[in-house]
Amino acid sequence: MHHVAGLPRLEGMAETAVDVKDLSKRYGDRVVVDDVGFVVEAGEIFGILGPNGAGKTTTVESIAGLRIGDAGSVRVHGIDPWTDRRSLTRVLGIQLQESRLQPKITVREALELWSALHPDPEPWPGLAERLGLEPHLDQRFVSLSGGQQQRLSIALALVGRPRVVILDELSTGLDPRARRDVWQLVRDVRDAGATVLLVTHAMEEAQELCDRIAIVDHGRITALDTPDGLIEAAGALTRTSFVPSAPTDLEALRAIRGVASVRRADDRVVVEGIEDAALAVLSALAGQQVVPHRLRVSGATLDTAYLDLTAHPDKEFA
């Protein structure tokens, strides 16, 4: 049912956009990226998810040719970013984490400049409009808020019509509304044919956008699958909770097949189990003549899966 992680989904059909093989990078004797490998197909939104310091940024900066790996190889549409950065800049756009511009440059000037750097730029007024930059075109970079700087940074990554876009911590500093807008923009960019590499530590963002996700921890890929695949593999549980209208026999609920745990939390009863157990719990309550007020059923999310996959055993003994 699931395709093998790291292999093209449609054999022979999909073009490989990014191919990372056995990538390693160390700073002094600290290994930051440890034997990382994955393949991203053209047109995919590929997430790299992991805690701070896991090696995510070093990995994508090696793909962008800003760092040279100590071992392994990288190809972006067949180009070697370590030896041929000039060709790479024609196919790859990157939004770097915490990268600023000339303090007194205006938004308009930055967009015009970046357009002029690329042979076939996308008309920047459209990008400015989609990213909500229009009211700020004549503002200087230093006077922009963090979110506005971030949106400008995204526009500059996209203006050259790259075939592969790397977005590092895309939604840092964005309010929820702007985040939704940016997510839609990322989907549109992909629909227009680009491949997107998304570095993030925001679970919701990864689950919302990514076709596949590599979870990176301590410089290694600990899991690589679709968001659903990751959740399923982690065996995360569905949680049903409610305020009972009358005293409830919790032992009877515990006896239900597929229920893993039952506990009280203040006035609520919380039941965890497999997805179908929620229905069985409801019918058992009906049998006890108990009405479940303020009922909440929440499915497993990437959050729980992620915590499972990046668990640090050494920390539990600390």
């Binding site: 040719g65 800049t89 770097l96 990268s99 000339q102 690329h118 050259g160």
Partner: peptide, 17 residues
């Protein structure tokens, strides 16, 4: 120095210039 510190030079390395 401000350009280097702010990452302007680094950022330019990812463009054709």
């Amino acid at each position: 120095l401000a350009y280097r510190e702010a990452g302007v030079l680094r950022r330019l390395r990812t463009t054709p210039v």
